[in-house]
């Protein structure tokens, strides 16, 4: 059969599958039972004012561990795939010169971007944000650095040390929760819950967010670095 017809058929089938969901959707007037529980007990259970972060880091912490594992796996596969051996690497490849606007802007903006990323991941339990968002912002700073100077060399040793240390620390916090507390894996009650709304509150959550942010930030920076360096193959 004609290929275009098959494509149209598949897209139409997808539309037919999705349409009843759209048609029956009214926009609920009240929360689901689970959402209601999280809204009412989120603060007393976790001490965090950002309910999404309390779901991601505490209530569904195990899912987050799986998420981190998938990201780590993807980064490992990419570095395995695109690694260039020392023998067939050009040290400084000639690249199109960047404009002065970009190079100056990157020098000014990269520290600020990293600072904003750090702010967002430290305040993840209070305001919108968290480890993943902050890490992604830090990695976007790395991207700007690479845009301004494609021959920039990332220090892979430091990146790997930070990444593995924060990964191990994240799992260690989880295991300590199982061993010492009654809260189970990734228990939030490792530290005092404190007053909701303060930076040092919500138990282990700021710590977990910082480790997550460091791990995600270094991991994404590493992936970007590998993508750039793989261009240096002869």
């Amino acid at each position: 059969m004609d290929k275009k017809f098959m494509v149209a058929l598949l897209v139409a089938a997808m539309a037919v599958i999705l349409f009843p969901l759209f048609q029956s959707f009214e926009g609920g007037t009240q929360l689901s039972e689970l959402g209601q529980y999280y809204t009412q007990n989120g603060v007393s259970d976790t001490g965090a004012t950002n309910l999404v972060a309390s779901v991601v880091v505490t209530y569904r912490g195990l899912d987050t561990l799986g998420e981190v594992t998938i990201l780590f796996l993807a980064a490992s596969i990419i570095s395995f795939f695109l690694s260039v051996s020392k023998d067939d690497r050009i040290e400084n490849r000639t690249v199109m010169s960047v404009t002065e606007i970009l190079s100056t802007a990157s020098q000014t903006l990269v520290p600020i971007i990293v600072l904003v990323g750090a702010y967002i991941l430290v305040n993840g339990h209070l305001t919108p944000g968290g480890g993943f968002q902050g890490g992604a912002i830090i990695a976007s700073g790395t991207l700007l650095m690479f845009l301004a100077n494609p021959n920039h060399k990332l220090n892979h040793t430091i990146i790997h040390v930070i990444e593995s240390t924060s990964g191990i620390a994240f799992v260690a916090i989880g295991v300590i929760g199982v061993l010492m507390m009654d809260g189970g894996f990734l228990s939030n009650k490792l530290f005092d819950l404190g007053t909701p709304g303060e930076v040092i509150s919500a138990g282990a959550m700021p710590l977990i967010n910082i480790f997550l942010g460091l791990k995600v930030g270094t991991e994404l920076s590493n992936v970007l670095g590998i993508f750039v360096e793989s261009q240096n193959e002869k």
Binding site: Y38, T39, G42, V43, T49, N50, L51, V52, T127, P128, P196, G197
Partner: peptide, 9 residues
């Protein structure tokens, strides 16, 4: 609105 509580929780 977004599920963020105010400063007093």
């Amino acid at each position: 609105t977004a599920p963020i509580l105010d400063a007093e929780g």
